[in-house]
Structures are given as structure tokens and as C-alpha cells.
């Protein structure tokens, strides 16, 4: 099941673990990424906590944790090659896997149709 946030993150839910990344729209808006800083495995975040940082040539931006939970895996491939986020943000450019504190929280997020409407 694919869900989206108003902060332009996507979540792919499998059981109580969500793979999280930023949307194509967000990657396009940020432009060429040159640096990604990911959280540590085992770190816990509240919803909307600052979980990761991405930097383009021009500016740094925070990536928020879309739901409360614990980081169980990170995608080191994007720290060694941040351009993966630009070329494939909803595939090889994923950020981290989050074990949700409460799976039902995901029900409040947008589905793909609602997100597409948001970004116009």
C-alpha cells in the first residue's frame, strides 16, 4: 500500500514496516542533490521529526519522519550517490525503513490520487 504526506514523502507499507522516500515532485523541486544525511538505524522519531537532510547545490532541506517509529534500515546507496534520489526517487532512491509505532496511523495519510491532486 502506497501513502503520501503533504511534506512530499511517500511510504510503502508492508506489515508494520514502511519504506520511506521523497516524491518525484519533491526531487524535481529540490534539483540536483549533492549530499544526503540519513538517520542511524535504531533511532526513534515522532511524526514530523527531522529524520534526514538533503542538500542541493543551492540549499539544505529537512526530510521529516512521516509517522512515529524506529529506523530499522537505511539506504546507504543514496549517501554515496545522492543523484539516485533525482533519477529514481520512488525506487532505488528510497531513504529508510521505519517500524511504525502504530500501523493505524498510516490510515490518515493521503493515497496517490489525493497526493496528485495536492501537487496539481
Amino acid at each position: 500500500m502506497l501513502k503520501f504526506t503533504a511534506e512530499h514523502e511517500w511510504l510503502k507499507l508492508e506489515g508494520d514496516v514502511a519504506t520511506v522516500g521523497i516524491t518525484q515532485h519533491a526531487a524535481d523541486q529540490l534539483g540536483d542533490l549533492v549530499f544526503v544525511e540519513l538517520p542511524e538505524v535504531g533511532a526513534s522519531f515522532e511524526k514530523n521529526g527531522e529524520a534526514a537532510t538533503v542538500e542541493s547545490v543551492k540549499a539544505a532541506s529537512d526530510v521529516y519522519c512521516p509517522l512515529s517509529g524506529e529506523i530499522v534500515e537505511i539506504n546507504e546507496a543514496i549517501t554515496s550517490d545522492p543523484s539516485l534520489v533525482n533519477s529514481n526517487p520512488q525506487g532505488a532512491g528510497w531513504f529508510f525503513k521505519l517500524k511504525l509505532s502504530n500501523v493505524a496511523d498510516a490510515d490518515d495519510l493521503m493515497d496517490e490520487a489525493a497526493y496528485k491532486e495536492l501537487i496539481g
Binding site: 534539483g31 540536483d32 549533492v34 542541493s56 547545490v57 543551492k58
Partner: peptide
């Protein structure tokens, strides 16, 4: 114009 479709990296 802050950038064109090529993007900052390619333009640079």
C-alpha cells in the same frame, strides 16, 4: 531565472 531545465549542476 535561477535555473533552466538542465539544472544547476549541468549548467555549471
Amino acid at each position: 531565472p535561477v535555473q533552466y531545465p538542465a539544472g544547476v549542476m549541468k549548467e555549471h
